[in-house]
C-alpha cells in the first residue's frame, strides 16, 4: 500500500509541469492581451500599451515569464488577478464552495438515480424499462450541456415558472457567507424560506450538470450488474434463502460497485469541466464562471492558476478513489 501511494505521488510531478506548461502557453495563444482587453475597442496608444505591459511584466521573453511563474509557484505564490488585483488563492477559495455545492448535488443526483436505474435495468434485462433507460442514457450522454441547460430553463423556468432562472438564491435574502455552502448558510441564517429558495435554485443546475454522469453511471451499473448476477456467489446467496433485496443489494451490487466506483472517479474531471458551462448558463457564482470571465479578460494569472488548482483537485480525487477502490475490493487491499 505504501509503495503504491509513493508511486502515485511520483507521477504527480510531471503532471503538474504538464498542466503549467499547457495553461501558460494556451492562454497566450489567444489573440490579444490583458491590456488590449481592458482598454477596449478604442485605438490604444502604443506607448501606453507598452508601459502597461511592462508594468505587468508581460514584455519579458516568454521563457522568462514561464520561469517567473514557476518560481512564484514554488514559493506558494499564486499571484493576483490582473483585473481585480485580488489574490488568486483568495478568489478561488471564496468561489469554490459554490462549485463544490453544485457538483456534490449533481453527483448525488447522478449516483442515486444512476445506480437505481442501472440495477433495475439489469434485473429486467430486455424489458421495456431496460431499453427505455438505456436509450435515454445514451441520449443524455450525447447531450450538449449548454443546449440542454437552455432547454430546461426555457421549459421549467420560463414556461412553467417552477424554478428560478439563475443565481444561487433570491436577491431578497441577505445571507452571510459562513461556510460558503448556500444550503448550510441559509439554514444558519434567520431568514425564513431562504433554505427552500436556495434548494430551488440548485435543482436545475444539478440536473444539467448531473446528466452526463447519470448516463454513464446507469450504463456502467447495468453492465456490471449483469455480469455479477451470473456469478456463482449470487446463486449461493439465493440458496441461503435470503430475500431478493438482500441478494441484489448486499451480494450483487456490492461487487458491481467496484467498476462503477472507478468510473465515478473519472467523472469528477468531466464534472468540473461541465461545471464551467453549467455555471455560465445559470450565472452560478463559482470557479467555472470565474475562469470563463478570466479567459475573456485575458487574466493570465487567474487562468493559469485557476486551472492548476482544478487540475490538482481532479488528481487528488482520483487518488482518493484509487484508495477507496481498495476498500471496496478486498482482493486489491491485500495485494502488496
Amino acid at each position: 500500500m505504501f509503495s503504491f501511494i509513493a508511486r502515485r505521488l511520483g507521477l504527480l510531478i510531471p503532471t503538474f509541469f504538464g498542466v503549467t506548461l499547457l495553461t501558460f502557453s494556451l492562454i497566450r495563444m489567444i489573440p490579444g492581451d490583458p491590456v488590449e482587453v481592458m482598454m477596449g475597442e478604442r485605438r490604444v496608444d502604443p506607448q501606453m500599451h507598452a508601459e502597461a505591459l511592462h508594468r505587468l511584466g508581460l514584455d519579458k521573453p516568454l521563457y522568462q515569464q514561464y520561469f517567473d511563474y514557476l518560481s512564484n509557484l514554488a514559493h506558494g505564490n499564486l499571484g493576483e488577478s490582473l483585473i481585480t488585483r485580488d489574490n488568486v488563492w483568495h478568489e478561488f477559495t471564496t468561489l469554490f464552495p459554490a462549485t463544490l455545492e453544485l457538483a456534490l448535488c449533481a453527483m448525488i443526483f447522478a449516483t442515486v438515480l444512476g445506480l437505481l436505474a442501472g440495477v433495475i435495468a439489469a434485473l429486467r434485462r430486455g424489458s421495456l424499462f431496460d431499453h427505455g433507460v438505456m436509450g435515454i442514457s445514451l441520449t443524455g450522454f450525447s447531450m450538449p450541456i449548454f443546449w440542454w441547460g437552455l432547454i430546461l430553463i426555457m421549459f421549467f423556468s420560463v414556461q412553467l415558472g417552477w424554478t428560478p432562472v439563475s443565481g444561487r438564491i433570491d436577491l431578497l435574502y441577505d445571507i452571510e457567507p459562513k461556510t460558503g455552502f448556500m444550503l448550510i448558510d441559509s439554514l444558519l441564517s434567520d431568514e425564513e424560506g431562504a433554505f427552500m429558495d436556495a434548494l430551488h435554485h440548485l435543482i436545475l443546475p444539478s440536473i444539467v450538470l448531473g446528466t452526463i454522469p447519470l448516463a454513464v453511471i446507469a450504463r456502467m451499473t447495468r453492465s456490471a450488474m449483469l455480469e455479477v448476477l451470473r456469478e456463482d456467489y449470487v446463486r449461493t446467496a439465493k440458496a441461503k434463502g435470503l430475500s431478493p433485496a438482500r441478494v441484489v443489494f448486499i451480494h450483487a451490487l456490492r461487487n458491481a460497485l467496484i467498476p462503477v466506483l472507478t468510473v465515478l472517479g473519472l467523472q469528477v474531471g468531466s464534472l468540473l469541466a461541465g461545471a464551467v458551462l453549467t455555471e455560465t448558463i445559470f450565472s452560478w457564482p463559482g470557479v467555472g464562471k470565474w475562469l470563463i470571465d478570466a479567459i475573456s479578460r485575458r487574466d493570465y494569472p487567474v487562468v493559469q492558476n485557476g486551472i492548476l488548482l482544478i487540475a490538482t483537485l481532479v488528481i487528488v480525487v482520483n487518488f482518493v478513489v484509487d484508495i477507496l477502490y481498495g476498500f471496496a475490493n478486498p482482493r486489491i487491499r491485500h495485494q502488496r
Partner: peptide, 19 residues
C-alpha cells in the same frame, strides 16, 4: 431453503462472495 433444504455447489472458489 438454506434451512431445512440446503445445497453445496461445485466450485467453491466462486461460490463464496469475494467482498
Amino acid at each position: 431453503i438454506g434451512k431445512d433444504l440446503s445445497m453445496v455447489f461445485q466450485d467453491p472458489m466462486t461460490a463464496l462472495n469475494p467482498s
